[in-house]
């Protein structure tokens, strides 16, 4: 049985003070992952003494467009992403990904910061945010640091967050001219799915030529990472010379070289190739239509 003391933070400052002055603190926001882990007595949820409730911190609940980025408060819910005009305008793949998370009830409660900090290999927001080169801001009583999301992640269900830090926001740099995005997901049913596989693709196309490609599958590797070799294979290539099916195969090879052959590999090898192929085909089609 997991026992703990509960402390509700009335403000960010007090939350940081609490974190700074106590050992064994676990923060709870939407609770949609944590309370399940506690119920299941999952090892991930063991070994803490205090539950710090930050769900009431309104100051971390915002989505705003800034000069060069969109800032998403860590306590913004998935529903906020789905409904936000700013997100839908700049990062439709993020809204698409958020739509596939859990159910309406989960999206109303679960937060962007929670999804990132839980760091599940199948988290639906991680591939798009990594592909968008998002940064996260972490605050302590004494200061703030900002680091790229892919550096923040340290492994499956592991991050580089220090025990006295709270994630305050996620900054997603605006994409310049000529960028296209796509999100794909496979689940075992049509709603309330943990991703069997997901995929975010962000790339630029100028003069029919691909630049700055970012390909991030989820639930494919121990935790979501960019598939650099696959990206290289299309970077600088004319889209007419790219065979999306072949790039799909390449992504599958890259997955297997990272994970080795596992029980699910026979399935994921084919399915990931399909997703990559599909995402590229969709983007190339959009690019053509945009000409």
């Amino acid at each position: 049985m997991i026992d703990y003391e509960f402390f509700k933070a009335p403000s960010l400052k007090e939350a940081l003070e609490f974190l700074g002055s106590h050992e064994g603190v676990k923060a709870i926001a939407g609770g949609t992952d944590l309370l399940v882990d506690i119920r299941k007595e999952n090892a991930r949820a063991k070994g803490f003494k205090y539950l710090l409730d930050i769900s009431g911190l309104k100051e971390l609940k915002f989505i705003e467009e800034r000069n060069d980025c969109v800032a998403i408060g860590a306590l913004s819910t998935h529903t906020m992403l789905v409904e936000s005009p700013v997100i839908n305008k700049h990062f439709p793949l993020l809204a698409s990904a958020a739509k596939t998370i859990g159910s309406t009830q989960i999206r109303n409660r679960g937060t962007v910061g929670g999804n990132i900090n839980n760091a599940s290999p199948a988290a639906d927001l991680l591939p798009p945010l990594i592909a968008l080169k998002a940064h996260v801001k972490l605050r302590t009583l004494n200061g703030e640091r900002k680091l790229p999301l892919d550096e923040f992640l340290a492994g499956p269900y592991r991050t580089n967050r220090q025990s006295d830090e709270i994630m305050t926001e996620v900054c997603v740099p605006l994409l310049g001219e000529g960028y296209f995005t796509n999100f794909q997901k496979i689940g075992r049913r049509k709603a309330m799915n943990i991703a069997r596989l997901n995929l975010a693709v962000v790339l630029g196309i100028k003069d029919d030529t691909v630049f700055d490609p970012r390909i991030v599958p989820g639930a494919a590797t121990a935790y979501p990472i960019r598939f650099g070799k696959t990206e290289e294979a299309i970077s600088g290539k004319r889209i007419g010379d790219i065979d999306p099916a072949e790039i799909g195969e390449r992504a599958s090879e890259e997955m297997i070289s990272a994970t080795g052959v596992r029980w699910s590999t026979p399935y994921k090898r084919i399915a990931l190739a399909s997703l990559v192929k599909r995402a590229l085909e969709t983007i190339f089609r959009e690019a053509k239509a945009n000409e």
Partner: peptide
């Protein structure tokens, strides 16, 4: 007839 059976024709067992 889940994802694996339909795609591969046989089930995969997680063990």
């Amino acid at each position: 007839l889940n994802l694996e059976r339909v795609l591969l024709g046989h089930p995969l067992r997680k063990g």
